[in-house]
C-alpha cells in the first residue's frame, strides 16, 4: 500500500505543492534533452545519408573533443585546436570510407551496423592509445566563450535556474538543425545523399559518386560530433565514459524515427524531460537511479504502439 501510494498519489501531490520546482525539473529535462538530441543528430545524419546505423558515433564524439582539448592543452590557440580537430575528423572520415565502407557496398544494413560496432571498439582503443586512456581532460570553456553561470528567472515568487551552458547547447542545436535541413532539402549534394541512403547500387548507377558522398556525410557527422563533444565535455569532463551517455541517443532515435531531424529533436526533449521527471518523482519509490534504464524502457513501450517512431514513415511491406 505504501508503495502504491508512493508511485501514484505522492508524485502528484509533490507537483501540486511545488509547481515552480516542477517547472524547474521540466526545464532541466528539456536542456538535458537538447544534449541527447545533439548526439542523436550525428547518428541520424549518417543513417539518413548512407543507411548506416553508426554505432561508433559516440566514440567519434569523444575522439573529436579529445583531439581538440589535447591540442589546446599543448599550448596552441583555441582556433588552431578547433581547426586541428576538424581536420582530424575529416581525415577519419576518409579513413573510414576507405577501410570500412568501400569494401562493404551493398551489404545488408545489419552487417554494416555490426561493422560499426567493431569500428567503435577500434576507435576507442585507438583514442586511448593516442590520447591516454585514464586521464580526464577539461574543456577550456573560457577560451570558447561558453558561459558557466546560471541565470535566475523569477517566477511565482520563486526562481528558476537556467545554465548558460545549456542555453548555448540549445542555440547550437537549433543552428545545426536549421543548417542541416537546408543542406538536405536544397542542395544537390543533399539530394544525392538521400538517394544514396535509399539504395547504394541505384545511386551509383545514376552517377552519384558514392565514395565522396560518404566522406562528406561522415565528415559532417564528425563536425556535429565535435560540437556535441564540446557541449558534453563542458558539462562534465572529457573521457571515454561519455560513450555510455552517447548510447542514450538510441532511445531518442527510436522515439523520433531514425530518419527524421525534427523527430530527433522532439525525441530528445521527450526523453530528457521524461527521465528527469521520472527520476525525481518516482525514482526513490522504485529504488533510485532509474535514469539508467528509464529512457530505453520508455522507447520500448513507445515502439509497441508506433513501430516506425514519431516522425518515421509507415512501412508498407511488399512481396
Amino acid at each position: 500500500m505504501d508503495f502504491l501510494y508512493s508511485v501514484t498519489a505522492d508524485p502528484v501531490l509533490q507537483i501540486v505543492e511545488d509547481p515552480v520546482f516542477f517547472l524547474q525539473i521540466i526545464l532541466e529535462g528539456l536542456m538535458a534533452g537538447v544534449m541527447y538530441s545533439l548526439v542523436a543528430l550525428g547518428f541520424c545524419l549518417i543513417y539518413k545519408a548512407s543507411g548506416v546505423f553508426n554505432f561508433a558515433q559516440g566514440v567519434m564524439m569523444v575522439l573529436a573533443v579529445m583531439c581538440m582539448v589535447t591540442v589546446y592543452d599543448a599550448g596552441f590557440g583555441i582556433l588552431l585546436a578547433l581547426l586541428v580537430a576538424m581536420v582530424f575528423m575529416v581525415g577519419l572520415s576518409f579513413a573510414i570510407e576507405r577501410v570500412v565502407l568501400r569494401p562493404m557496398v551493398n551489404q545488408p544494413q545489419i552487417i554494416l551496423f555490426m561493422a560499426t560496432i567493431g569500428l567503435a571498439f577500434f576507435l576507442e582503443g585507438f583514442g586511448e592509445f593516442i590520447f591516454g586512456g585514464s586521464s580526464q581532460k577539461i574543456v577550456p570553456t573560457e577560451a570558447l566563450h561558453i558561459g558557466r553561470d546560471a541565470l535566475l528567472i523569477p517566477m511565482f515568487g520563486s526562481e528558476i535556474r537556467l545554465q548558460q551552458l545549456d542555453l548555448t547547447a540549445g542555440v547550437c542545436a537549433a543552428l545545426l538543425v536549421a543548417t542541416l535541413a537546408l543542406f538536405f532539402q536544397k542542395t544537390t549534394v543533399g539530394r544525392a545523399l538521400r538517394a544514396v541512403a535509399d539504395d547504394h547500387q541505384a545511386a551509383l548507377s545514376v552517377g552519384i559518386p558514392l565514395r565522396s558522398m560518404w566522406v562528406i556525410v561522415w565528415s559532417v557527422a564528425g563536425l556535429v560530433a565535435l560540437v556535441t563533444g564540446i557541449m558534453w565535455g563542458a558539462s562534465s569532463s572529457v573521457d571515454f565514459s561519455l560513450v555510455l551517455i552517447a548510447m542514450k541517443a538510441f532511445p531518442v532515435l527510436i522515439l523520433g524515427g531514425f530518419t527524421s531531424v525534427p523527430g530527433v529533436i522532439v525525441g530528445g526533449l521527450i526523453i530528457g524531460v521524461g527521465e528527469k521527471v521520472a527520476e525525481l518523482y518516482w525514482g526513490d519509490a522504485l529504488g533510485g537511479s532509474i535514469e539508467e534504464w528509464f529512457a530505453y524502457v520508455l522507447a520500448l513501450v513507445f515502439l509497441m504502439f508506433r513501430p516506425q517512431g514519431l516522425f518515421g514513415e509507415k512501412i508498407i511491406e511488399r512481396v
Binding site: A115, I117, G125, F126, E128, G133
Partner: peptide, 17 residues
C-alpha cells in the same frame, strides 16, 4: 588493453569484409 581493443575492432571489420 588498448591494443586489444584495436585488434578486436579491426578483426571484426576484417572478418565482415
Amino acid at each position: 588493453q588498448h591494443i586489444e581493443f584495436m585488434l578486436f575492432g579491426g578483426l571484426i571489420v576484417f572478418f565482415l569484409i
